[in-house]
Amino acid sequence: MIAALSATLVSLSAAAQRDDLPPVSYPILAETARDAKGFVPGGWKLEIQDTGDLDGDGLPDLAFAVHQRDPSNIVPNGPLCGDTLDTNPRILAVALAQRGGGYRLATQNHSLVPRRDNACAEDGFDSEGVIGGGMDVMRGTLRVRLGRFMSAGGWSMGSITYTFRWQQGALRLIGYDYTNVQRNNGEMKTLSINYVTRRVKIGAGSVGDGDVKTRWSTVPVRPLLTIDEIGDGLEFDPNGLVGSL
């Protein structure tokens, strides 16, 4: 019975996933602006912003995300997980503070937070989701968090957090943290990578069980990836470690 139910859920999830998303074109944001709202292009909405010194010059830099609001990107869906699916994309951006005031755009990225293509998968960047996502600036780094939760078609839930440092003219990945819990059996796995020290911490256990087994390893010496080299933040598998958990 359980096997049959699992097969049904997987089939339903596949039906809910879309491979025919409406095409979109991504605007180039303004080069300079007085505040975050000044970078928002027409037809887009400022979704989240935070400030903090990212480039070490003592000035509070700006990190923000904009979300397109195009009705044509809200597509029909059914019969599972809602009548419509909002596939509107996002752009993450960093603007560095200028001595005379205002900000200068330093980078923008539209691949780390992927467009939604499955109505049964929660919006991973939504701070109000079951596993809340979002972004913030903390201790000179930018952290981007993606939640993972399926209302149908999968038992796993968890989060992925990317930690970036502004270095050599780009946002470069210095930390990766992954958690996963199987809702059907409580199995829990975690992965934490510090790309500065090259240390990797892998944990395995069960929810509510204090006996978590931990093992350590290292990643090879390689140049730090930029945010644009990561691609889809939900699909990225650093050094194949997620797939081997």
Score class of each variant (00 low, 15 high):
R115I: 14
G243K: 04
V221N: 03
G231V: 14
L62Y: 12
E122S: 13
V212K: 06
V40N: 00
G101D: 02
S206G: 10
A106W: 08
C81P: 00
H67W: 15
R18H: 14
R148G: 04
C81V: 10
A121L: 07
D232H: 09
A65L: 03
Q68R: 15
R222V: 01
Y103D: 06
L224P: 13
R34G: 15
P220F: 04
R183N: 09
Y162T: 04
A65H: 00
G58D: 04
Y26T: 14
A16C: 14
G100W: 04
S72R: 10
A97D: 09
N184Q: 07
R18T: 08
Q17D: 11
H67K: 12
N88K: 01
S217K: 10
G158P: 02
L112F: 11
L105E: 08
V75S: 05
D86V: 00
L173G: 01
L46H: 12
K213F: 05
N73H: 07
W216H: 08
M138S: 14
P23L: 05
D50Y: 02
D70C: 12
T141E: 06
W44N: 02
L85F: 06
V196K: 02
A36K: 13
V94D: 00
L171C: 01
T226K: 09
T161H: 00
Y176S: 02
D211W: 03
T51V: 13
F149Y: 13
G129L: 11
S156Y: 04
E31Q: 13
G231A: 12
F149A: 03
T51M: 12
R183A: 07
F125K: 03
V137A: 06
M157S: 15
I227A: 06
K37I: 14
G154D: 13
P22A: 08
Q182D: 14
D136H: 12
G82W: 13
A65T: 08
A204Q: 15
G233F: 06
I91Q: 01
K37Q: 15
T226Q: 09
P79T: 06
Q168D: 14
D55T: 02
F64G: 00
G205C: 08
N109D: 07
P238V: 09
G133I: 13
P238W: 07
G186F: 01
M135L: 15
V113P: 00
Q68M: 14
G153W: 07
D232N: 15
S127F: 01
D70H: 10
A63K: 03
V144D: 07
G38P: 06
W166R: 03
D209N: 15
V181W: 00
A95T: 08
I28W: 05
L112S: 04
G124T: 03
T32L: 09
L241N: 02
Q108V: 04
D126R: 04
T107R: 08
M135F: 14
P114G: 06
N185A: 05
Q98A: 13
F149S: 01
Q108W: 05
D53A: 11
G233M: 11
G147C: 05
A30C: 02
A7Q: 04
T8H: 07
I202E: 12
R198N: 15
F164N: 08
W155T: 14
L224E: 15
R116L: 15
N77T: 08
A15W: 07
G102P: 02
E128V: 12
G210V: 01
G101N: 02
G101V: 12
G203K: 09
V207E: 13
T226R: 10
P238L: 11
D53M: 10
P220L: 03
A106N: 07
R199K: 15
